[in-house]
């Protein structure tokens, strides 16, 4: 691959996810070296940058389960030319969304008050803590998302394929074997 004149800036984050997608991203192994020739990282678990600045590509793992997730997602959308949802949770809510058929009040009640063994349980109300949303949402329900890489997690090859397609200015496409939802 020919190195572009200017490195593309990439930011990544995990919202209501398990970092599994990030682990898979790292699984691209030695190709990571190839990648850092082409891109530089903005906010990401790989860097120490706290807020996402102007970027070419933003990669979001995980869905939205609380107010902070929404803030971070919006910051990414505002700063990234291309936003990619990566993994089942970002795409359809995934495991965290399994709580969606219960009411949030009932869940908080159960977790902090009713559960056996809790004495004087109270629901944490520290303003530092982000409040949970009543339902977990996939990210495309809240901001426009440009590309999706499904999988739980997507394979390193799938991530690599989408990124290299994009770097090459192509419409990313996963064929048989690379597209999977589990």
């Amino acid at each position: 691959m020919n190195a572009p004149t200017k490195k593309l800036r990439v930011a990544t984050t995990s919202l209501a996810g398990c970092f599994g997608c990030h682990m898979s991203f790292l699984d691209i192994d030695e190709r990571l070296l190839e990648l850092v020739q082409l891109v530089e990282f903005d906010r990401s678990p790989l860097t120490d940058i706290k807020h996402c600045g102007p970027c070419d590509i933003g990669i979001i793992e995980g869905g939205l389960c609380n107010a902070e997730n929404v803030h971070v997602l919006r910051e990414f959308r505002a700063n990234c030319k291309i936003l990619i949802a990566i993994g089942a949770c970002a795409i359809n809510g995934g495991l965290p969304a399994q709580r969606n058929h219960l009411s949030l009040s009932a869940i908080l009640e159960e977790v902090y008050h009713a559960q056996h063994g809790l004495v004087d349980g109270f629901i944490p109300n520290d303003p530092e803590l982000p409040l949970p949303l009543d339902k977990v949402h996939p990210i495309h329900e809240v901001v426009k998302v440009d590309y999706f890489i499904p999988g739980c997690p997507p394979s390193a090859d799938a991530i690599w394929k989408v990124l290299t397609d994009l770097l090459a200015g192509k419409e990313p496409e996963l064929g048989h074997g690379l597209i999977h939802y589990d």
Binding site: G94, Q98, P138, H140, E141, I149, P150, L174, Y181, D182
Partner: peptide, 29 residues
């Protein structure tokens, strides 16, 4: 939620979605 579905890999809905390059559910759940 395919990751927790026993049918995953043997599911016609899923396989057809792969066949047709369905990258996301697009609509609101």
């Amino acid at each position: 939620f395919c990751p927790s579905c026993e049918k995953s890999g043997n599911c016609q809905l899923q396989a057809t979605a792969y066949q047709l390059n369905m990258m996301s559910p697009h609509f609101d759940q």
